[in-house]
Amino acid sequence: MKVLVAVKRVIDYNVKIRVKADRTGVETANVKMSMNPFDEIGVEEALRLREAGKATEVIAVSLGAQQCQETIRTALAMGADRGILVQTDVELQPLAVAKLLKAVIDKEQPGLVILGKQAIDDDSNQTGQMLAALLGWSQGTFASKLAITDDGLEVTREVDGGLETVKLKTPAVITTDLRLNEPRYASLPNIMKAKKKPIDVIAPDALGVDPAPRLKVLKVEEPAKRQGGKKVASVQELVDKLQNEARVI
């Protein structure tokens, strides 16, 4: 079984985000970029499946500008077998990504597709679900455990009330939650091997998909500055403020 993992290039989680002066987005020039952490978890899970003999090949797919090759290299250095870059400078929104991924999947025919539950830049949390719908496949989102059974998959999902375990038929789309695994570091020998692994570069045209954005961003703003705290004299005053000022109880 082939496993396809989607990996997105995002601003590193350690970077302090700056909003552009014209409020059209966030500053990405000269900013450290990394693989979306949830996608790293996806790569790790796919590698574990391969190491357990449940998967034969792990393919890392990224979509976006040419620099996304670095993100694919990271996946290859972790151990993925090959990469595919759908290269475009157009801003990609979840629906476009899902359509492009579907086109890649139609060609590659993987038995399992793993995505991060969301990317830490736009926090959309849509691509996996949209992709499953477009493919007409089963989906197991927010997975904290994944087990391959004789007749499909068992996925433990992190839901509001606790954990929910569902049975899925394959092929299926999985999106990862934080507790699914702890991703490995790429070892030095694997970093060196990664550059010999192939990355196919495809244009959206070749996949017959129009990736143009359907949603328009009106403005991007920084969150409001945190207000300073207040001291209260008595429990009575605290309760009063929580009820009438903060209106949280």
């Binding site: 670095e70 990271t74 250095a77 570091y185 030095l188 970093i191 060196m192």
Partner: peptide
Amino acid sequence: SEDQEAIRRTAGDFA
């Protein structure tokens, strides 16, 4: 080089 950048990054993340 791209490799050296990847090596540096891995060492930094690990540390």
